[in-house]
Design a protein around this nucleic acid. Structure first.
Lengths: 219, 219, 219, 219
DNA sequence: CATGAATGAGCATTCATTCAT
DNA sequence: AATGAATGAATGCTCATTCAT
């Protein structure tokens, strides 16, 4: 139970400590995410975050110097990794269309499966972005990261001839991201009767009709 | 115009007062919108709203009983009227497609022209919706209002044969609204280099490719 | 029990802290009583109570969650213990009359000796009782506690034949308490020239004349 | 309906106006008493008093220059007249004892019959007396007025031989008034099951036993 | 005279952050 | 390192009083 020595002399065991530290850090982030999602950023109190992480306030402050830093870290570590994730998971897809539809799948799945608070956390972050320059920059960074990736996929398709040639990759990519964000939004707040499966197929059908030139083809 | 008597009775002074009251109410709403957009709901202070409206705090409280009511009123009067607006402005369009593309136009134009804070106000409202049930309800109401309208337009098109018959109006409508909201979002926060004109034509092209069946058709 | 070491290490600091806490709690109550007595409940400000306790506002709120709770605690701890006190101090009196006259003595002495604010505090509590249900309940509780005790003493006297048999203990007890409260009141506010000693003997004479039947008898 | 002219020239009609003024003044006092009794002095708002008197705030301020003045006036006109009333109503009693018991009767009757708020108003006044010197003086004045009267009655009895000679009129009078005030208090706040009739007879019995020397005695 | 809108100081309470132990 | 008590500025809202109309 003690985090110190087991016997009477071992001075270091830094590894355990380092692990512990990371565990604690994550438990703070978990607690913070929960509270932020619950109360919003402003109404979340450090006291509540601390007590949900089973830490004292003082201890918490050894991990994050300000409340805002907790938010920023969440933004980076829990929201900012989406682009990287997309890249990784769609790496071995075969062709631009497959990659794109994989992205749609990932998004749709995330909507249902991922810690359901993530969507809301995004919403909270957006809300804060208005006042907090750093949060704003974080979100803009995430946006342009995603944009880069989506653009690359789309360009891949136009270059290979898989997609119509007259497509504007930057604009389309930006629309797709906005669509995803918008869906996440309404999903976070409203979502009474949206059927995810039907949403997915409509998204894909629309994309296919637009992107893939002529003959026929369903998904 | 006189506030006293014209002839033989004392007609009190209602008219001017009523106008004054409305003017002031609006100036409070203007100030509040500005401050909310600037600071977010929680960080906006009544003192600042009051002083931006050039009113004393006490005076402000004669118009709105709580800070929350100001937000709610903004939600109703400045955000909640979109559906009605769409309905009215697209009333005399000719056919479903034209109506739909008119909506896209309206949206795109609003993005640029309308009081620029409106998009951000929507964002603030969304941020508050997590904690404030009433705000949440207001936003849900707005959403379903918009949904009804978009669905009706889409159905009109499928019924008349203008659109592909295998479309799911509810899902598509919901996607379109989410798209618009998502675009508004990124527009509010990021807006670095999105070209609205190109965004508009991509939107329309995609919709047309999906909705309008086969033969030809450019925009 | 210790959260630190088991043996000869830092035994934390609970004891001192517990004492400190109680000391501070009392100093808040002292300050509050002084301010309430000075300004009345409504006009007493937390700021003043805090600064008289030499604490910051925030610190004060660690001890009492609301201003009202301070009042309630005073009511309980400084006013509500009278019945218990009477019971205890008159425990070893010999016979009902002696017990009763001891109560009168106690009351009269309290009037002069006890922290002089107590009478006024009672007055403040009464004033608040009109609006504050909880204060009202507290006072009613105190009243019925006192009533129980006085009734028991009187009944003891009637049963033992020490007192006239035709006495109504409930009514008499209630009158005696009201008399004491009324005296406390005028004492709190007026106090110009009432001679406590003479008041005491008149009270006792009247009671004796009424309670103790015929022949003779001094106290 | 107008208080001005009936036709087109009558300049004065002061009498009606004077009556109206007094009516209004009384209706303000009624309203104020009701609100004070309901909310206590501090929590009572001028707005509520005004609206209960069906007057505008501005109009109310033409009758009383400050909130405190309303209280003071109530104190004088509705609480301060008790001594005078006692004097008048017990004027034609026959002998000191009869006069005294008449006072008890008057008091008991007042407790039940008089506008039930009067007792509470007294309580409110007491509560305010702590902070408001003027209110305090008003109450002290009422007290010493009552004291004078009671003393005179008691002295009448001792001088005439009706009462025991060894009575201290000042002290007894003060006790009697305190008793009455104390009863009024508990009556205002607690009063669940006090039986007024039995209270009255106990009061009288006690007084008689004390005051009227030996032999017999009915009430 | 009457109205009721306007003023603005004042108050209970909260909470990020610090720091003695 | 850990604790959690202390700080005190900040905020939403109230209300006696004034005064333009």
């Amino acid at each position: 139970m003690s985090e110190r020595s087991l016997f009477k002399g071992v001075p270091a065991l830094p590894k355990v400590t380092a692990q512990h530290k990371e565990t604690r850090r994550q438990s703070i982030l978990d607690a913070a995410q929960a509270v932020f999602v619950d109360k919003g950023y402003q109404l979340a109190t450090i006291d509540e975050i601390a007590s949900r992480s089973r830490l004292s306030v003082g201890a918490l402050y050894r991990y994050f110097p300000t409340k805002s830093d907790i938010m920023l870290t969440l933004l980076e570590e829990r929201l900012g990794r989406t682009p990287e994730l997309f890249r990784r998971l769609s790496a071995d897809a075969d062709g631009a269309w497959q990659r794109l539809s994989l992205c749609v799948d990932l998004f749709v799945r995330a909507l249902r499966i991922r810690h359901p608070g993530t969507g809301r956390l995004l919403l909270v972050a957006w809300g804060e972005a208005l006042q907090d320059r750093t949060v704003r920059l974080g979100l803009q960074h995430r946006f342009s990261d995603l944009l880069d990736y989506m653009m690359s996929v789309i360009e891949e398709g136009t270059v290979s001839g898989e997609f119509r040639p007259d497509i504007d990759p930057a604009v389309l990519a930006s629309l797709l991201i906005s669509l995803a964000d918008g869906v996440t939004l309404s999903w976070s707040i409203a979502t009474p009767g949206v059927d995810v499966r039907r949403m997915r197929s409509t998204m894909l059908a629309m994309l296919r009709a637009y992107l893939v030139p002529a003959p026929s083809g369903e998904e």
